[in-house]
Design a protein around this nucleic acid. Structure first.
Lengths: 141, 141
DNA sequence: GCGGGTATGTCAAACTCCTGACATGGAGGA
DNA sequence: TCCTCCATGTCAGGAGTTTGACATACCCGC
């Protein structure tokens, strides 16, 4: 195991890089970046999430998500109250325009995901998902 | 499959994010970034690689690798000839100091990789590696 | 020989993301 | 009640990466 390209980390990195590139290309025609799309998708499934919660859900820092949210807000894709009624968390929601943009981009993203999914033998998909979860969990603290 | 967090792309992204974070933390004490380490490692295995070849091997653009190489050069970890004798490609090589720094960082990186590897059942490791390769290959053109 | 195609190194500008830091608001124990 | 701890939103600065572009150098078919 002296060749670093044989190690698990290298393979994960390569697969993730390929995925990221494909997503970038697919989302560009919808004028969305990957974090922006991830944010919209998360917000569609769980409306009212705060900045910090969205950051954790998309694997970026609060600060990065803050700028992402501001951009989405300026584009009119999401809304956030100016002040919090309880605590400091500001619950974000999709606007009608945001929902439409998400619907348009979703098909492109799903096609990318499907292309990747189709590349693995179907009988191994469940194990693969479980292993990816275990790898991620191995670094949580 | 309406929950986006159940899709393969999300799992890959999460695993890669966890790995990247762990590598960042592990390499910080060696004053190296992930691309810098990847570059050194690749250069150790295949001395004389050019900027563009290193970029492809580490999944970044030529421009990014160029700045990485310049930093490594300024730190005295690699050397590059000022002019190319054949074509424009400038073959890079590790210096003695670069080799020492790599050796020091390698154990930390290997520990991270091993921790991730240990998280997956050993009888599935070979399949996992193969599937990751298939996923990456699905996006090549 | 030579002209198109390809690959390389490099520059400039913009963008994204991160680290570090600070102030605010809530929860729980002394 | 007070006060320590934790989570959140935000600001400032900097580091890293990307897109777009340009000039140079080889290759190959004509």
């Amino acid at each position: 195991m002296e060749d670093a390209t044989q190690r698990l980390g290298y393979r994960v990195k390569r697969a993730a890089a390929a995925l990221r590139g494909a997503l970038d290309r697919a989302l560009r025609e919808h004028d969305l970046t990957v974090p922006q799309y991830a944010c919209l998708e998360l917000l569609d499934q769980r409306p009212g999430l705060s900045n910090a919660e969205l950051a954790r859900g998309t694997f970026v820092t609060r600060q990065s998500m803050n700028t992402v949210l501001r951009g989405l807000q300026d584009s009119g894709l999401i809304t956030r109250p100016a002040a919090a009624d309880h605590g400091r968390a500001l619950p974000a929601h999709l606007t009608e325009q945001g929902r439409r943009r998400l619907d348009a981009a979703r098909s492109a993203v799903y096609a990318v995901d499907q292309r990747m999914t189709d590349a693995v033998p179907p009988e191994r998909l469940a194990d693969l998902l479980a292993d990816l979860d275990r790898m991620a969990a191995a670094f949580e603290r």
